[in-house]
Nucleic acid binder design. Sequence first.
DNA 1: CGCTTGCCTGGAGTGCACTCGAAGGCCATA
DNA 2: TATGGCCTTCGAGTGCACTCCAGGCAAGCG
Lengths: 156, 156
Amino acid sequence: MTVMDTTRTRTDTCGAPPQPHRLPDGQDRYTISEVVAVTGLSAHTLRWYERIGLMPHVDRSHTGQRRYSNRDLDWLDLVGKLRLTGMPVADMVRYAELVREGDHTFGARFDLLESTRRDVLHRIAELRDTLAVLDRKISFYADADRTRGGATAEED
Amino acid sequence: MTVMDTTRTRTDTCGAPPQPHRLPDGQDRYTISEVVAVTGLSAHTLRWYERIGLMPHVDRSHTGQRRYSNRDLDWLDLVGKLRLTGMPVADMVRYAELVREGDHTFGARFDLLESTRRDVLHRIAELRDTLAVLDRKISFYADADRTRGGATAEED
DNA sequence: CGCTTGCCTGGAGTGCACTCGAAGGCCATA
DNA sequence: TATGGCCTTCGAGTGCACTCCAGGCAAGCG
């Protein structure tokens, strides 16, 4: 990505989460290919997100090309996180709509986030459970390896 | 489920994990609808699992109907847990194949489980990360609710 | 004996989240 | 001037994990 290399500046905001690839606010006008590079999403997907209403309105250059801002990147970050909680895209679109509708939807957004949070907690618990099962099986196979031909009970 | 009620016996193995719905070994010949009831999977899905090779060979009644054993239930339990780690069905089929191939695949099974374990750990970390973001946003909205019209920074 | 219920099979269909391709066009830099 | 990166619309294709359907057999009941 030649574009990336030429536009890069040393400004690493040493703030809370060490966000790399970020230009200071005011110069944050990333092309789609830059966003592809930082998010790992495809250009197709980015345009598709916009079509389905999953993005706040993305700015355009005078020639009509997309120019993403730091806020857009933050939003994509959130979307990415929500996506790997298993939240369906439709629900994220719903949240995006609430944001577009303005401040009077704060309550609804709060509720949505709260229920997502409960969901995530639940999933973490499930995964821990699975981990326990996995550990049991793993130690079974580790034992089986040492006690070659011993009286190993049935296990899969 | 009339079937379930009539076949139920009081034998609750007070062993380690208090598995309900289990008949003592020897009489464990569950119909597909019983398995549907305990696993939450559909009969369609159960048959599909078999077709794609995700089940060890399930026994049949003299009329050709499936009769699931406690071992089958255990297997389905494992499958369920693996499924919610996000493991693709194809990988589970691979594991099932290893089991069918016999004891000489212990090493491969161990490796597969280990890598799944790493995966689960990774996903838990991701979810925790997401949880942190969620918590930040939630407390933002909670604050916004109290400091009505205050100098709230931009947030989505 | 016929009806209902439960189960069987193979194959087709569904929903989600992308993913890709084609066609045609604008703009800027080498 | 040519090349490369981006734009649009639009529709079709992909992969996954089911999900459903049509057609048919076997057992139990009134």
